[in-house]
Simulated assay, not measured.
Amino acid sequence: MGQPRGQGFQPTPCPRCDGAELDEAAYALLLGWYLGDGHIVAAKRGVYTLQIANDEKYPELSQEVAATMRLVKPTASPCLRGGSTATRIEVRWKHWPCLFPQHGPGRKHLRKIELVGWQRDIVARYPEQLVRGLFHSDGCRFVNWATRPIVGGEIRRYDYVRYMFSNESEDILGILTDALDLLGICWRRPRRNAIAVSRKEGVEMLDRFVGPKK
């Protein structure tokens, strides 16, 4: 059915401009995806397109991103566009820059990326969701190995699960480590652009709300 006569198009209200309700848990998850593999592109007539890229090997995660976009913008109809290696999930809205004030010209690692006060408040309430979005966008879970001597001088190999997040933005790395600190998860920095979680208790906690990609 079309719009009733005399009733024109009704724009989706903005949580920031119009006081519309915001699903904060979904927003924290989408924020993680945006910081990792998302960007906002200006379209026509003041409309913006939020694009999240996801490896085409993980279609269930692409569907999760689309569902999360619908929770943040309830009237959204996400478009999934396939590519040679990645799927782009897209939704248009005039108010994406309101919800993601980190939007700006140039690549994220070449400019300052800071959460504003209301974003920090949401992350404080839903750090697990932010961490899930970050690790599933620019991170991975894999089995690493190491060796150690045992009695008699024998060298034994052992395997352990490790989470790794890589990003060229110092600010985004800091946003992740702040959230890990909130959760009490120990992390370390094995190289300049990476954060790793290797301790058993931290891995077990991440497994509860991040887990392997699928």
Rank of each mutant, 00 (worst) to 15 (best):
R92H: 14
I40R: 06
Q3A: 10
W118F: 05
K44Y: 11
E90G: 04
G104T: 07
C98D: 11
L30C: 00
T68N: 07
L80W: 05
G36C: 06
V72F: 07
L80P: 02
N54Q: 14
G83K: 07
P59S: 05
N54D: 05
S62I: 00
W96K: 05
G8H: 14
C14T: 12
V116K: 13
Q51A: 14
A66K: 12
E90W: 02
L134R: 00
R92G: 09
T49M: 10
K44G: 09
W93F: 09
R125S: 05
D37S: 14
R125D: 02
G36Y: 01
R120I: 03
Q129I: 02
Y27T: 00
L35H: 05
D138F: 02
R5P: 10
G19N: 08
Q129W: 06
G19C: 09
G46D: 08
L22D: 03
H95G: 13
C17G: 07
P13C: 05
D18V: 04
Q3L: 11
R5L: 12
V91D: 03
W33Y: 15
Y48T: 14
C98Q: 11
V41G: 07
L110I: 09
Q51G: 10
V116D: 13
S84Q: 13
L29W: 04
K94E: 13
C79R: 15
G8V: 06
P105V: 09
T49Q: 10
A66H: 05
L99E: 06
T68K: 03
A28V: 05
V65F: 01
C17S: 13
Q3R: 15
T68C: 13
R107A: 06
Y34G: 01
A42G: 08
D55L: 04
E60N: 14
R92D: 15
G46V: 08
L61A: 03
E21V: 14
I40N: 01
I113E: 02
D55R: 04
K44F: 11
G133E: 00
G8Q: 07
M69D: 02
L130I: 04
R70Y: 09
R92K: 15
A66I: 06
G104R: 06
K57Q: 15
G6E: 10
T87Q: 03
V65M: 02
